[in-house]
Computed example of a mutant assay.
Amino acid sequence: MLKRHGCSWHQRARRAIERDDDAVEVWKRETWPRVRGPRRSAVPGSSSRTRPDSR
């Protein structure tokens, strides 16, 4: 049906045309570490939601 009307099927681009890759890299390097925050320590805990950790 598309060919009959002179059209063809196109797959969308995965990135926006307006994307500024340099600005994205600066954001990831400078802003993201502050936003992400510190990781939690690897302390074994309880898998039960109803019973607190019995340490």
Rank of each mutant, 00 (worst) to 15 (best):
M1P: 01
M1D: 06
M1H: 08
L2W: 15
L2G: 12
R4C: 01
R4W: 03
R4N: 04
H5C: 10
G6D: 04
C7S: 08
S8R: 15
H10S: 03
Q11P: 05
Q11G: 15
Q11I: 13
R12E: 11
A13D: 12
A13S: 12
A13K: 14
R14Y: 06
R15A: 06
R15N: 08
A16W: 15
A16F: 12
I17T: 12
I17F: 12
E18C: 12
E18T: 14
R19M: 08
R19D: 06
R19W: 07
D20W: 05
D22C: 01
D22S: 01
V24C: 06
E25S: 04
E25K: 07
E25L: 02
E25Q: 09
V26L: 14
K28C: 00
E30T: 01
T31E: 10
T31M: 06
T31L: 04
W32K: 13
W32S: 07
W32Q: 12
R34F: 14
R34E: 13
V35L: 15
R36N: 08
R36Y: 10
P38R: 10
R39M: 02
R39C: 03
R40G: 03
S41Y: 09
A42H: 14
A42Y: 13
V43W: 08
V43M: 08
P44R: 14
P44H: 09
G45V: 00
G45D: 01
S46P: 06
S46M: 05
S47Y: 07
R49L: 11
R49N: 11
T50D: 04
T50Y: 03
T50Q: 07
R51P: 05
R51A: 13
R51C: 09
R51S: 14
D53M: 11
S54K: 15
S54L: 12
